[in-house]
Amino acid sequence: MHPVRKIFDTNDAFPFSFAYKNTKSSQSELPDHFHDWFEIVYVYRGKGTFFIDHTFYDMKQGDLFLIPGNTIHRATPDKETPVTSTAVYFSPGMIQAPQLGDSFSYLHSFEHAARVRHYKLELLLPQRQHMEPHLESIQRELKQTSPGHRQAIFLQLLQLLLFIQRDVGSGSMLTAGDPLVGPVWMREILLFIDQHFCEDIGLGTLSKQASVSPAHLSRVFKQLIGMNITAYIMTKRIIRAKQLLGESDVNIRHIAEMCGFESLPHFHAMFKRVLGVTPAAARKSIR
Rank of each mutant, 00 (worst) to 15 (best):
T10V: 14
A13V: 06
F14H: 09
F14G: 05
P15L: 01
P15S: 01
P15G: 00
F16M: 07
F16G: 10
S17D: 14
S17Y: 05
S17P: 04
F18T: 03
F18G: 10
F18E: 07
F18W: 11
F18V: 01
A19F: 07
Y20L: 03
Y20Q: 01
K21C: 02
K21Q: 05
N22G: 06
T23S: 11
K24H: 02
K24D: 03
S25K: 01
E29C: 14
E29V: 13
L30V: 01
P31E: 04
P31R: 00
P31Y: 09
D32L: 12
H33R: 06
F34K: 05
F34H: 14
F34E: 02
H35I: 01
H35W: 11
H35L: 10
D36T: 00
D36Y: 04
W37R: 00
W37K: 00
W37S: 02
F38V: 01
F38T: 01
E39K: 12
I40G: 03
Y42C: 04
V43T: 11
V43Y: 12
V43N: 08
Y44F: 15
Y44V: 01
R45H: 09
R45L: 02
G46F: 07
G46R: 03
G48Y: 00
F50Q: 03
D53S: 14
D53M: 05
H54T: 09
T55A: 12
T55P: 08
T55L: 04
Y57R: 01
Y57W: 09
D58L: 15
M59F: 10
M59V: 10
K60R: 14
K60F: 15
Q61Y: 15
G62H: 10
D63N: 15
D63F: 15
L64V: 11
L66T: 10
L66Y: 15
I67N: 11
N70V: 07
N70Y: 12
N70W: 06
I72W: 08
H73K: 12
R74H: 15
R74W: 14
R74K: 14
A75G: 12
T76Q: 10
P77D: 04
D78M: 13
D78R: 08
D78W: 13
D78F: 13
K79V: 08
E80P: 04
E80S: 13
T81E: 09
T81Y: 14
P82S: 10
V83W: 03
T84R: 11
A87K: 08
V88W: 06
V88P: 08
Y89A: 09
Y89S: 08
S91L: 04
S91M: 05
P92V: 08
G93A: 06
M94H: 07
Q96D: 05
Q96I: 10
A97H: 14
A97T: 13
P98H: 09
Q99I: 11
Q99D: 07
Q99M: 11
L100Q: 04
L100N: 02
G101D: 02
G101N: 06
S103C: 09
F104P: 01
F104G: 00
F104C: 02
F104N: 01
Y106W: 14
Y106K: 03
Y106R: 03
H108Q: 09
H108R: 13
S109Q: 15
S109V: 03
F110Q: 06
F110T: 01
F110Y: 14
E111C: 07
E111I: 12
A113Y: 12
A114S: 10
A114V: 00
A114L: 06
R115W: 03
R115H: 09
V116E: 10
V116G: 10
V116R: 15
R117T: 00
R117A: 04
R117I: 00
